[in-house]
Computed example of a mutant assay.
Amino acid sequence: MDPQDGYDWQPQQTGYVPPQHRPRAQVPRVDAGRLWAGGAMTALVAALTAVVGLLLIRGVLGIPVFAPEGDGAMGDASTGVLAMGAAFAALVATALLHLLMLATPQPGTFFVWIVTLATAVMVLLPFTTSAPLDARIGSAALYLVIGIAIGSLLSAAGRSATRQDF
């Protein structure tokens, strides 16, 4: 007799294991503070990636993307708009990842697919304009690098922010 449940049980004979003797399931838990700290740092990296990319494309390569050629390497207000847009995209992606971590099985897989497809849209978007080919390629390359930065950094932050409760 088991004193806890008041009856004799033999798991090897019946296959039944009372709930108190069953191993507890692993329950993933999201450390929201850690996730959003990673999201904030990803936003900073995305904004700086946009600025560095524009310096490279405009200043070094001389391709007039996001501003007329006469505006120089740092361009005009479009540089700030692109940097803020990249940071905003990283924060939106953080919110998406948080939602996926709370509500879906295999959130990392869904997140990678969504970020990859969103990045593909942004990479293809310049090719729907009438801008010069070199400006379209430069814009697409910059969007690709920003998308890769956001996707890879937030995927790592999501893994780091997941805890297993036993």
Rank of each mutant, 00 (worst) to 15 (best):
G147W: 03
S139N: 03
I148D: 08
G108R: 13
L117N: 09
I137M: 08
L133A: 04
G15E: 03
A149L: 14
P64F: 07
L61R: 11
L97F: 00
L61P: 04
W36V: 10
D134G: 15
A47S: 03
T116K: 14
L99E: 12
A118L: 14
P3C: 05
T42P: 15
V115Q: 10
A93T: 07
G70E: 05
A90W: 03
A103L: 09
S130M: 15
P132A: 03
L125E: 13
L55I: 03
L133N: 07
R29V: 12
G39D: 05
S152C: 13
Q106W: 04
Q4R: 02
D5I: 08
G33T: 11
G80E: 04
M1Y: 12
T119M: 11
A131G: 04
A157V: 10
T79H: 03
L82H: 07
A83K: 01
L54I: 06
R159K: 14
R163T: 06
V81K: 13
D5H: 04
L35N: 01
D8V: 07
M41A: 13
P3A: 15
Q106A: 11
A87K: 00
M122G: 13
T79E: 00
G70S: 12
V115S: 04
L102P: 11
F111Y: 00
A156W: 10
L142T: 04
V30F: 14
L48G: 13
A73M: 02
Q10M: 14
R163H: 10
P3H: 03
V45A: 15
D2R: 10
T128I: 08
L99I: 12
D2S: 05
R58L: 09
I150T: 08
L144P: 11
G15P: 12
R29F: 13
R22N: 15
A25Y: 06
L133W: 09
L154N: 05
A95K: 06
Q4T: 15
P126G: 13
L144K: 06
R159G: 06
G53K: 01
F110D: 03
L99S: 14
L35R: 02
L97V: 05
P23W: 09
F127T: 13
M1I: 01
L124A: 06
E69W: 05
W113E: 14
D31L: 10
G158E: 01
G151W: 03
G80F: 05
S160T: 08
P68I: 09
G53V: 07
Q13K: 09
P105R: 12
M101V: 12
L96I: 10
I146S: 05
F66P: 00
L99V: 13
R29Q: 06
A93Q: 07
G108P: 13
A32I: 02
A156T: 08
M1V: 10
A46P: 15
A87N: 00
Q10A: 08
V27M: 08
A140E: 02
V121M: 05
P23L: 06
G158K: 13
P11D: 00
G33F: 07
